[in-house]
Design a protein around this nucleic acid. Structure first.
Lengths: 224, 224
DNA sequence: GCATAGTATCACCTCTTTGTTATATCAGTA
DNA sequence: TACTGATATAACAAAGAGGTGATACTATGC
């Protein structure tokens, strides 16, 4: 149940929005002004912020800047002003999207989802199942315990985890791992590496649950 | 100079757009239909795709799906239809933004930048001097050429590059590399790794310019 | 200059990684 | 069911990683 912070001084509009968002399965917290917005943000943890540009006690830009300075939560401007300069300014203070009133509720939700999706993707750690890569330290863990991977195994896993749910052909994988150095490797080498990697990260290497084989096509990392 | 792929069947509109985008410093490739769009995408590497929804030989949705299945390049729909259902559908096939015509050029650019920024944030390269780490691929390059580092050498370099200009004590470094596994290593081991790392990344390993020795204190990566 | 502690380098050993070939297993199909 | 191409596994050799102790160098204070 994603938590949304709505900063909007038009009470009637806010009520309608909250009604709709709640019915879509979101938990909404409402703040009516700049100060209240920043305070609410600091007091709770949110998955997305909807921000009116013109607030009673100041501009939404200030709120956006404050939020972005402290976190990476997506911020979407909701505004009456469809002015181009305002839109550009909104993006410049770090907004993730900018929607002009009157907005259409389903589009709003689509844009919120989009912003949240993007945001979670860029978070530091990559994980899949119970296995996590911390690219900032070059370390792989499984259920919290470190798993030692060789350089090539690490790179192979990285390719999978940064292309989760995507089918990766054997050619593509071979390319990612070996083309850089310009060498050619045997046809079977990838098979062997897949086995070694699975041996280290899968609970049951015989019936993999993290990296699946797609016969005739390639492999694919899935998040069970 | 970011490279843009524009898929648009309205020739006049495309011309205008290309003129504008070029003047803003983008390199634009133009494809006029669905098939041509996918072909162009596969043939080149782009930083962003602008996609008309209604193409002569098919829908932009197909193109978007094809692109998203193969890569993470940001895709922005440009469309005459301001229809809400279309917008939602656009986001559902993985689009990064959806702009209705007539669009305002500066807003378009702001949204393009936004989409590209989000996208690249996940793979911020770390570099120092002529050496670069690409944490998203686990690869180190020096003057563009790949340098093969072993797992420990890679982690050592990662510690330095993510703490650029900071003095790192020998204890701290030893901890970062070996404490995870709980093992104790000889006092001299770090010296040996420093030598091996320098051998691979420094222009002149005898007088290092990337990772400096601070006698009695530790080491420090500097950006010359 | 000499002593000293800190750092760099060397030679060496062991264990792992890397890539190969050979063989087994499996899924789909005639 | 038997065949076939695709994938998995096993076993091996060569190269390299990882770690150690001994030795050489170097900055600094006496």
């Amino acid at each position: 149940m994603p938590k949304i912070l709505l900063v909007e001084d038009d009470i009637q509009l806010a009520k309608n929005l909250m009604l709709f968002l709640t019915s879509e399965g979101y938990t909404v917290t409402h703040a009516t002004g700049q100060a209240a917005g920043i305070e609410a943000f600091e007091g709770g943890s949110f998955d997305c912020v909807l921000l009116d540009l013109s607030l009673g006690d100041g501009s939404g830009f200030t709120v956006c800047a404050a939020i972005k300075a402290a976190s990476d939560v997506p911020v979407i401007f909701l505004t009456a002003s469809a002015d181009e300069a305002c839109t550009v300014a909104g993006f410049e203070v770090g907004a993730d999207d900018y929607i002009s009133k009157p907005f259409r509720p389903r589009e709003l939700v689509a844009r919120m989802k989009n912003a949240m999706r993007k945001n979670s993707r860029s978070s530091a750690a990559l994980s899949c199942g119970n296995v996590t890569i911390d690219p900032a330290r070059g370390i792989v863990t499984k259920n919290g315990a470190e798993v030692y991977l060789s350089a090539l195994e690490y790179r192979l896993l990285l390719v999978f985890f940064s292309n989760k749910d995507k089918l990766l052909s054997r050619d593509r994988l071979t390319e990612e791992l070996w083309s850089v150095s310009g060498e050619y490797v045997s046809d079977n080498t990838l098979n062997v590496y897949m086995k070694r990697l699975r041996e280290k990260i899968e609970d049951d290497p015989q019936s993999p649950s993290i990296i699946l084989t797609v016969r005739g096509m390639g492999y694919k990392a899935v998040d069970k």
